[in-house]
C-alpha cells in the first residue's frame, strides 16, 4: 500500500521522473532471454515431475514452489516491467500479493493439509 510510505511520492513526483522511468524499458534482448529462461524453467519443472524418485523425495514440493515463484517474479519484474516502473506500482501489487499469500498459507494451516492440531 502506498500509504505505508507517505513521503515516497517525492520519488515520482514530477513528470520528468515518470518519463525517465518509461525510458528505462528493457530491450528486445532482455525479452528474449526472459522467454528462454521461462521456457527452460518450465521444462525443468515438467521433467522432474517424471522422475518418480524425486517426486517421492521431500525436496519435490519445495523445488517446484521455488521454481514457479521464480517464474512468477521474472514475469512480473520484466514483462510487467515492475522492476523499471514507478515504485508506487510495486506497492500496489506487492502488498495485496503478500496478503493473498498469507491468506492461502494461514487457511492451509487452519484446516488444509498442513493443519496444526494440538
Amino acid at each position: 500500500m502506498a500509504a505505508d510510505h507517505p513521503h515516497s511520492q517525492t520519488t515520482y513526483d514530477t513528470h520528468g521522473d515518470a518519463h525517465a522511468a518509461e525510458h528505462k524499458h528493457p530491450t528486445w534482448k532482455t525479452y528474449k532471454w526472459v522467454a528462454l529462461i521461462l521456457f527452460v524453467v518450465t521444462v525443468v519443472e515438467v521433467w522432474i515431475y517424471y522422475i518418480p524418485s524425486f517426486v517421492a523425495s521431500r525436496a519435490f514440493v519445495p523445488v517446484l514452489l521455488v521454481l514457479s515463484a521464480a517464474k512468477f517474479a521474472i514475469v512480473v519484474a520484466f514483462y510487467m516491467h515492475l522492476k523499471y516502473d514507478a515504485k508506487l506500482f510495486r506497492a500496489l501489487f506487492v502488498f495485496p500479493l503478500l496478503i493473498g499469500v498469507a491468506v492461502i498459507v494461514s487457511l492451509l494451516f487452519l484446516f488444509g493439509q498442513i493443519a496444526v492440531r494440538a
Partner: peptide, 9 residues
C-alpha cells in the same frame, strides 16, 4: 499528482 496515468494506477 504523480505524473502517472490514472488507468495504469
Amino acid at each position: 499528482t504523480t505524473g502517472l496515468d490514472h488507468r495504469k494506477i
